[in-house]
Design a protein around this nucleic acid. Structure first.
Length: 946
RNA sequence: GCCCAGAUGGUGGAAUGGUAGACACGAGGGACUUAAAAUCCCUUGAGCAGUAAUGUUCGUGCGGGUUCGAGUCCCGCUCCGGGCACCA
């Protein structure tokens, strides 16, 4: 009987739905295992073969765990709010709601063909009100919380208010936008509006007036991870810096916990490293400098406190508030001119062009260690947004300060023994400190660092600074707060209304507030949010509902926030929602959360390292502080599947003709390579007729062939429509079946590695399945498996496979387990194995990889249960024991011949057998044996010498 | 500039410090067939010697080192990919 994959796969898809094979419920008697894929944006292009890679890998793991007896949660859903979905709608001129639902249907159809064990009853969509209810809810919780550094976690805002009522900002150790100082009396005297503004300084979700990434083309602000090299990740449009009032999340408050948490999770080194870089912890010292001739001080941040004696000038960021203060009358014109120059430069220019520029302010700062007066300069190389926006410049040991000093002819004082600073600065943190001033040389202190290592000198200086009240030890982070509002339509509305300009939360029990329908949802270049077009968009406080904005009276009816939330809002806690997706009382019930805990295995792309994977860790830590999530880290183990690249094919047109020359002959002609659709090329041989039919202009194309074939060139490129190298999984399923697709995607190479898709190799996997089928059905439809006892060879082959596959799945080495399957099936075929027990075990092992075929054959073996619940077999080492072992016999490390010895041969016997073997004689002739090394079962190396 | 990961046949890729190239594709040869498809068998890292069996040398980006023995460990480079980046 032929392997009819179409009939088999159709049959089992239906059966799985009917029998709810993949439905999962909390079961206290079973250990849980939570497998999760990053849910997709349903974009318009549909899935290509790269998308299912991670889903297949995790599906295999999920099925494997289920067969091992775990209660496995493996859900799927759609990240359907946000920029990508909306951009697609705009491009196709349709309403995003319509395109989103269409795209979801298309995705579902494609996913269903591949045979995943998703529990679709748990599907979530971020754009569904029942879902974003909890996104809005979490936002309100963040609004009503602040972060307390003393207890290291989020606290209700009431606790802070109490503190302010009693103590003002005294002894306040909390995360804040800027350091405010006021007394309890001052606080209590503030108006409601003033208090609201002050509290914004502390809330975890807050309105902040900050520099944001504004993208006019997309008509919205963007978070830092959504901007790369000054352009938007989505669409590649220019981004400018603009001061705007936006909702922000105080992610920076969690910087240390986000960093510490990395040590507790099993993620790849490279992702952890990326997150560490992004968080950018830097431990240093803040030191106060007095502005000469005044009583004013300003603070700088340095990681090199040891270089206090090498400071020769100070630099302020042009945006620093100090600039006005330190600019003297005679420098005013020059400073103004410089500030105008800085303003004229775009963010992108500043990033690329590092020419030294700057201006002297006219003022001096007093070095608190030496009493020296150092000129204060203004330069754009100092960033306003990091540290204090002011630095002490040590040109000898910082390359930027060095370049600046050289350019403006400022002095350079070296502080490290033997450091050559004639050509460049010595930036390394290695060496012995010298050149501390002699005792009594400064009017201030006797403080000498000479002879210390840099590390010791930093510690000594910190200690000194602390003891003498010159500043404080400070940890800075590069991680910025996340801009949380977007001037777009397709996103979660904020559950916020404005009462006399004070933002108020819509009562929790009135959530969700649903996205209103609007005619015109297009973004605007000026930033007016599309929700401004919604007529029914005002909050009636009395009747507690959304009403027509014509009713706004400023007393009981108020305008609702027009911004929407960004894409990452919905994707930050979706893993919790899968645990309890229909709950309308809570994001997740205590019971469900305590059962499923957190995600054991998370599979997805590494491109989310500084976006989703930071935000969701932050979000979950917040929910953990609230007691909603019982685990601090959401994703225990993370596997990043590699990107599937495209393999493009080319034809070579001879210039100015319609004649195409085959790859091997093209060197004789002047040709232009042209991308050709990979679907009309097989094994790099062009289907000439299909090519002619492909495009009208190739209708009468002519070809110069080699060996009667047209051979195409190829290249590895990104998989994209414009390169004509997109391979669609539906097509593979249609031609080879889902099981073949699943096997081949895994066989391509290690899951975590990026690799090109090349349909050419797929025959091998398809052949393997046909061969395996052939172990069950003869060509004459006879069902082959028979009762009886298995031969030792059959058992050995099988148990070798069990051992290999069990280990490989745990390591995600699916490619080598499939190789092992191929070897085993070849061996069993060679042994003409018909033993039912052996074949049945083989099917159980196959089930995670090729579930359709496994179910079909499992049923044929007489089972009326699903193979998904067939217990994973254990291997028996007894069967794997060899009676003889092949020893490679080498002399001085080079293998010369092999001998067969009993498997349990002792080292001594092996050594004797090797030395006495007739082949050894010619190598031993004239030499003496110095040493013999025996690796049991493998190798005997005889070291000889004169 | 700093940090991370990687480099193995024509291709994708295997190798707890122990016979490098498993497995698969492609290619070449053969069987079956009127033919094709499908299926099956053999060869396939490079070089040299030999009619042949076979023997032998060289081979895991480059240069050193440790070791009886290195793709694997150590030191120094080159190249490719990724992250951070006037972050003081």
């Amino acid at each position: 009987m032929e392997y009819n994959f179409r009939a088999i796969e159709e049959k089992w898809h239906k059966r799985w739905v009917e029998q709810q094979t993949y439905k999962v419920t909390e079961d206290e008697n079973k250990k849980k295992f939570y497998v999760l894929n990053m849910f997709p944006y349903p974009s318009g292009a549909g899935l290509h073969v790269g998308h299912p890679l991670g889903y297949i890998a995790s599906d295999i793991y999920a099925r494997f765990k289920r067969q091992q007896g775990f209660n496995v949660l493996n859900p799927m859903g759609y990240d359907s709010y946000g920029l990508p979905a909306e951009q697609y709608a705009i491009q196709t001129g349709q309403h995003p709601e319509k395109t989103t639902f269409q795209n979801i249907d298309r995705y579902r159809e494609q996913l269903d063909k591949i045979g995943f064990c998703f529990d679709w009853d748990r599907e979530v969509r971020t754009c569904a009100p029942g879902y974003y209810h909890w996104t809005q809810w979490a936002f309100q919780k963040m609004f009503n919380s602040f972060f307390c550094y003393t207890c290291g976690k989020a606290q209700p805002i009431e606790t802070l208010i109490e503190h302010l009522n009693e103590n003002g900002t005294k002894d306040l150790n909390v995360a804040q936008s800027e350091e405010l100082t006021f007394t309890a009396e001052e606080w209590n005297a503030m108006s409601e509006k003033e208090q609201s503004d002050v509290l914004m300084n502390y809330r975890i979700a807050f309105l902040g007036e900050t520099m944001v990434n504004w993208c006019p083309k997309l008509g919205t602000v963007l978070a830092n991870d959504e901007v790369v090299d000054g352009v938007s990740v989505r669409g590649g449009y220019p981004v400018e810096q603009k001061k705007m009032r936006q909702w922000c999340l105080r992610v920076s408050a969690y910087a240390q916990r986000l960093l510490d948490g990395l040590e507790t999770i099993q993620w790849s080194e490279s992702i952890k490293e990326t997150q560490k870089n992004w968080i950018g912890r830097s431990e240093g010292t803040e030191i106060q400098f007095q502005i000469a001739g005044t009583d004013d001080y300003f603070t700088i941040f340095t990681t090199r406190a040891d270089t206090m004696f090498g400071v020769t000038f100070m630099v302020l960021a042009p945006e620093s508030e100090l600039v006005q203060k330190v600019t003297t009358a005679d420098q005013k014109a020059a400073v103004e001119e410089y500030l105008n120059y800085v303003k004229s430069r775009t963010e992108r220019e500043r990033q690329i062009d590092h020419t030294v520029t700057g201006v002297f302010s006219g003022s001096y700062a007093i070095n608190p260690f030496t009493g020296e007066k150092n000129p204060i300069w203004i330069s754009e190389y100092v960033l306003a947004g990091y540290g204090t926006g002011a630095i002490m410049a040590v040109p000898a040991h910082d390359s930027r300060d060095y370049a600046f000093a050289k350019h403006f002819g400022l002095p350079i004082v070296p502080l490290i023994e033997g450091a050559d600073i004639s050509e460049e600065s010595y930036d390394a943190k290695e060496g012995i400190v010298c050149n501390s001033p002699a005792e009594g040389a400064t009017p201030y202190v006797n403080f000498n660092l000479n002879g210390l290592t840099i590390k010791e000198a930093i510690a000594a200086t910190k200690k000194y600074v602390k003891e003498h009240n010159l500043g404080r030890v400070k940890v800075n982070f590069r991680l910025r707060d996340a801009i949380f509002s977007r001037q777009r339509y397709w996103g979660e509305p904020f559950p916020v209304y404005y009462k006399n300009d004070i933002p108020c939360m819509i009562p929790e029990e009135c959530l969700p507030i649903e996205l209103p329908q609007v005619e015109n949802f297009l973004p605007t270049e000026t930033g007016e949010p599309p929700l401004g077009n919604a007529q029914i968009w005002a909050w009636d406080e009395v009747n507690r509902k959304v009403v027509d904005k014509a009713l706004i009276d400023g007393k009981t009816v108020f305008p609702i926030e027009l911004y929407t939330m960004p894409g990452f809002a919905g994707s930050s806690a979706y893993y919790l929602r899968y645990m309890d997706p229909q709950n309308d009382e809570a994001l997740v019930s205590k019971k469900a959360d305590e059962y499923w805990q957190n995600v054991d295995l998370y599979v997805g792309g590494s491109e989310h390292a500084t976006g989703h994977l930071i935000y969701s860790r932050f979000w979950n830590k917040f929910l953990f502080d609230l007691g909603v999530s019982c685990k601090e880290e959401p994703f225990q183990k993370l596997v990043n599947q590699g990107m599937i690249q495209g393999r493009s094919n080319f034809v070579y047109r001879i210039k100015d003709t319609n004649t195409f020359v085959s790859l091997g002959l093209k060197k004789d002609y002047d040709t232009t390579p042209i991308h050709v659709d990979v679907n009309i090329v097989k094994n790099d041989v062009l289907d000439v007729e299909a090519f002619k039919a492909w495009r009208p202009e190739y209708n009468n194309a002519e070809f110069i062939l080699e060996d009667g074939k047209y051979i195409c060139g190829w290249a590895i490129e990104k998989m994209s429509k414009s390169m004509f190298n997109v391979v669609n999984p539906d097509m593979i399923v249609e031609n080879f079946g889902a099981d073949t697709l699943r096997l081949y995607e895994m066989f391509l190479g290690p899951v975590e590695q990026s690799k090109p898709w090349d349909t050419n190799g797929i025959d091998g996997c398809h052949r393997f399945l046909k061969k395996l089928w052939g172990l069950f059905y003869s060509r004459t439809d006879e069902f082959l498996p028979k009762e009886g006892s298995a031969t030792p060879e059959e058992l050995k082959s099988l148990h070798k496979l069990i051992k290999k596959v069990t280990a490989d799945i745990e390591n995600f080495s699916y490619n080598t387990s499939i190789s092992a399957f191929m070897i085993c099936v070849n061996e069993l075929q060679g042994l003409k194995c018909t033993n039912k027990d052996v074949l049945e075990k083989l099917i159980i092992l196959l089930a995670p990889f090729a579930p359709h075929m496994a179910e079909e054959l499992w049923e044929a073996l007489g089972h009326d249960t699903t193979v998904c619940d067939a217990p994973w077999p254990a291997y028996n080492d007894e069967y794997l024991k060899e009676s003889t072992a092949t020893y490679a016999v080498g002399f001085n490390g080079k293998t010369r011949f092999t001998i067969q010895l009993p498997a349990d041969c002792s080292k001594e016997d092996a050594e004797k057998a090797a030395l006495e073997n007739e082949n050894s004689a010619k190598y031993l002739d004239g030499f003496v044996v110095k040493k013999v090394i025996v690796v049991p079962g493998k190798m005997i190396n005889i070291v000889i010498g004169k």
